[in-house]
Amino acid sequence: MNWTHDALGDDLAAHLRGMTDRRVWVNMQLGPSGSTRPDVYTIPCSFTRFTPLAYECKVSVSDFRADVTKGKYTDYLAYASGVMFACPAGLLKKEDMPKGAGLMVRGEEGWRTLKAPTLAQCPELPRKFWLKLLMDGERRDHEREAYLRDYAVRGLNEREVSAKIRAKFGEAVAAAIDDHHNQTTRRLDSLKYQITTQMAVLEGELKRIDERRREARKSADDQCSKLLTELAALVGMDPDPDKVYVMANRLRDMIALAQEGSTVKRMRELVRNMSYSFKEFGEMESTIQDAAQPSRVAA
Rank of each mutant, 00 (worst) to 15 (best):
E160L: 13
V173Q: 07
G102A: 02
M104W: 05
A220P: 06
F169I: 00
E124Q: 11
L103I: 04
G204Q: 08
G102L: 00
R213H: 08
A174T: 04
E160Q: 11
K218W: 11
R212D: 10
I195F: 12
E109N: 12
A172W: 07
R217V: 11
L119R: 12
N182W: 10
A176T: 05
E215S: 11
E145T: 06
R213F: 02
K168A: 10
E203R: 14
R139H: 03
A216K: 12
A172Y: 10
D141G: 06
S219L: 13
H180V: 03
T196K: 14
S190Q: 12
E108M: 11
Q121W: 03
L119G: 10
D136Y: 03
H180F: 13
A220Y: 05
F169R: 06
D141F: 11
R144Y: 08
L206Q: 09
R208K: 09
V105W: 02
D96A: 01
I165H: 07
F169P: 01
D221M: 14
L202R: 12
H142I: 14
E145M: 13
T196V: 10
V161L: 08
L156V: 07
N182K: 10
L103V: 01
P126V: 00
L206S: 11
Y147A: 13
K164W: 13
I209D: 08
W130I: 00
R127N: 01
R106W: 06
M97K: 01
E171L: 11
Y151E: 15
P126R: 04
G110K: 02
E205Y: 05
K168V: 13
P123R: 03
E108L: 09
E109R: 10
E203L: 09
W111P: 00
F129A: 02
K99R: 12
T118D: 09
D96P: 00
R212Y: 14
P98V: 14
L133M: 03
D96V: 07
R214S: 09
L134W: 10
L103G: 04
Q183M: 14
L119C: 10
T184A: 15
D221F: 15
I165D: 07
L133Q: 04
N157S: 14
E143K: 05
T118L: 07
M97S: 08
D150F: 09
L202G: 00
V153N: 15
R154F: 04
H181P: 00
P123Y: 05
L202C: 03
R208G: 03
Q183K: 15
A216N: 10
D210F: 06
N182I: 00
E109P: 00
G102F: 01
R106K: 15
Q194E: 07
T184H: 13
K99C: 08
I165F: 12
R112Q: 04
K218S: 12
M97D: 04
G170H: 05
R144D: 10
T196F: 07
M135A: 12
R217L: 13
I165Q: 05
G107P: 07
Q198W: 08
M135W: 11
K168M: 12
A167R: 05
K115G: 01
L133S: 01
